[in-house]
């Protein structure tokens, strides 16, 4: 007798329910991978109904508006201030802000550090692509030393433009901060590690432990003038030595 085996077809990876598809990003931009990752985490934690996502200016705001959650489009910079206010008004909702590196490190640095000092119970996702991507790739606070941009044609020089900005390391020693980490999405293994970081950061808000920030290093193939494949090598060789990966702070329970 022939033993019949039933073959089932399982969906491993599906297209998420985004409001705007296709996304407006350039080919090879890592932002799309990160928005998909955040969408997966929200779905796994069953937070979609109560989530409000704060977008700011720049490319990161495009994804925030495309996600299938309630969104607020703020001006360029005070994403953390808007998120703090919204969390105080609606303490039962889940609030997270998506910021670019220029938004967090330059124009919104004041509100970012102030929210961390106050220990606001919000989550911040930073996307560090080492340049101002939407306006043509000018020098941003996070540009590594020696990187050529339209405003630094000889490469970034510390005498002229200073040293790169490290957001999670800056706020990690503050008492109000519960979680600070940095990840990348340039390889599948790193992508899964970063997904775990986002999940932990979201749990800190649900446990009411305080401020959580996760920074992502991402590629900007258009403004780096590299192909998407070369961008992964550039991240490996130049970005990761400058911006170390890993968790800088992880508070397990409330100090009291």
């Amino acid at each position: 007798m022939i033993e019949e085996t039933a073959i089932t077809k399982n969906l491993v990876c599906k297209t998420p329910a985004f409001r705007l598809l296709p996304l407006g990003f350039c080919a090879g931009c890592h932002y799309g991978i990160i928005f998909r990752l955040i969408d997966e985490v929200l779905e796994e934690m069953e937070l979609k109904g109560i989530t409000v996502c704060i977008g700011g200016g720049g490319c990161s705001a495009m994804g925030a508006m495309a996600m299938d959650v309630d969104a607020f489009g703020g001006p360029h910079g005070p994403g953390t201030a808007i998120a703090s206010a919204l969390k105080r008004v609606c303490p039962d909702n889940f609030i997270f802000a998506i910021q670019g590196d220029g938004e967090q490190g330059a124009i919104g640095l004041g509100s970012f550090v102030a929210a961390a000092v106050r220990g606001e119970n919000i989550t911040i996702i930073t996307m560090n692509n080492a340049c101002y991507g939407m306006t043509g790739g000018q020098l941003a606070p996070t540009t590594p030393l020696g990187m050529v941009t339209p405003t630094t044609p000889e490469g970034r020089d510390q005498e002229m433009a200073g040293f790169p900005f490290h957001g999670p390391e800056l706020v990690a020693p503050l008492r109000g901060v519960a979680y600070a980490a940095r990840g990348t999405v340039h390889t599948p293994a790193n992508r899964q590690r970063s997904k775990k970081m986002v999940k932990t950061a979201f749990q800190k808000q649900l446990q009411r432990l305080g401020f959580a920030v996760v920074e992502f290093i991402c590629a900007c193939p258009t403004n780096w003038r590299l192909s998407p494949v070369d961008c992964a090598r550039y991240i490996e060789e130049k970005m990761i030595p400058e911006f170390p990966l890993g968790e800088f702070k992880n508070v397990e329970k409330n100090e009291g």
């Binding site: 399982n10 969906l11 491993v12 996304l23 932002y31 991978i33 999405v185 992508r191």
Partner: peptide, 11 residues
């Protein structure tokens, strides 16, 4: 996972 444009469905 790695498709930035959500173009791939995997079974």
């Amino acid at each position: 996972w790695m498709c930035p444009d959500m173009a791939i469905e995997v079974y």
